[in-house]
Nucleic acid binder design. Structure first.
Lengths: 232, 232
DNA sequence: ACCTGAACACCGTTCAAGT
DNA sequence: ACCTGAACACCGTTCAAGT
């Protein structure tokens, strides 16, 4: 039995690995924000010299890519082919929300960096799977996937805090909040509703809209008999 | 007549203004990317010393905020209250697409920075205006606005190149493109459709879904007689 | 009020040297 | 193969001095 173990490699547990470096970077980002991340900081966190990092990661940009990859890899993607495709779509988009909640600050990096490894295609695979299972053809499935991604990304970007773009930044509590009533009548009029910020409900509202539209499209194609698995 | 001109201020045209600085920053970003932007670079572009910038802008972060503001201010927001609200919504979201096309690289900053001035509320105002004109109540109007923003942001983020998240990064032209067929069957099967990247059509497809869902919601509320201008 | 040179405390990254 | 000290060319920002 022992003979089977041909190489008893000394297993000198590696002081540094790409994994450990990425992990440390994620921790630092969640603690101090993306701007606070530095190669020197990561090295200090790991108790090594800065330059040691470069044995495992070519540069900072590659490290950030690793961070994006790590976050997406951490997505808990559901997959129950027996459910209606609308529920599967819902679950997929919600998975974005979950990971954005767990890594709010690292999420910015997912938004702004490419992911070169297959891991980055996992969400796309799931989206394509559920769309084509519903009977949409290839072209439509790809478009559905991209639309779902767009909403998932945008909703999460707003929620994470960056890019709350153009909304409720200055909760107007009294009067016009310094706003010109002629230019912003509705913002002023709806100040109470704008102030009541409930991301969960907002997110689900938009998601419902999307899913409903998807379902309507599905019924329409069904009725027409077209759009079905043309590939088969 | 000349007497009316009480102060013949020497009009020493300002060497430096916040405007000029922001403008230079936008130019540099569009030319060399966000990462390439430095205070020193901006100063050089304007032919002044670096520290002179600090007389008009407190720090780099504030300058970036100025950039975001500039881009949003440049949005050409349509406003024809006579059109159906669906068309108005469509036009509003398309305005995002337009500005993202004009300032693709600066757009990243709009995504990741807050905008503190009223300018940042312009799109929100328009969205609220069209939703409430359609008869949605305040709470619903706010949610519609946020859902529209989410899609507009997400779609543009994907298109601008950053955060094409999870899609068509490595156009698979032959075989499985190094992908595990067991893990990515649909990505591989739909490779041709994924490779055919037509942002315009993708964008409009998702937008149609959204608008249609909005219209369906509208008809439903109309039929129920509820959801109407409850505020009145 | 606005511009600036010099300086400070940081960056990311390279090189040559160690083991 | 992996770790490292010293060094380089940059950063953003502050200060004290100019006008």
């Amino acid at each position: 039995m022992a003979k089977r173990v041909t190489s008893v490699t000394p297993v000198t547990r590696p002081v540094l690995t790409r994994e450990r470096i990425v992990q440390a970077a994620v921790d630092l980002i969640e603690r101090g924000g993306v701007d606070g991340l530095s190669m020197r900081g990561v090295a200090a966190e790991l108790g090594v010299a800065v330059m040691s990092l470069y044995n495992h990661v070519p540069n900072k940009s590659a490290l950030l890519e690793g961070v994006a990859e790590y976050v997406v890899a951490g997505m808990d993607l559901p997959d129950d082919p027996d459910e209606p495709f609308t529920d599967r779509a819902r679950a997929l988009v919600r998975a974005f929300r979950k990971v954005a909640h767990d890594y709010p600050r690292s999420m910015t990096i997912v938004f702004t960096h490419k992911i070169d490894t297959p891991i980055g295609l996992r969400p796309a695979e799931r989206a394509l799977a559920l769309a084509s299972a519903a009977g949409f053809d290839g072209e439509t499935s790809v478009r559905i996937m991209r639309a779902l991604m767009a909403y998932a990304l945008g909703a999460q970007m707003r929620e994470v805090g960056h890019a709350k773009v153009l909304d409720h930044e200055t909760p107007i509590t009294e009067g016009t909040g310094g706003l010109d009533p002629a230019e912003y009548p509705h913002v002023i009029a709806f100040a109470p509703q704008l102030a009541r910020y409930d991301p969960e409900t907002d997110f689900e509202f938009g998601l419902d809209l999307f899913i409903e539209a998807l379902d309507a499209l599905h019924r329409r194609l069904d009725a027409a008999g077209g759009g079905g698995d043309a590939a088969t």
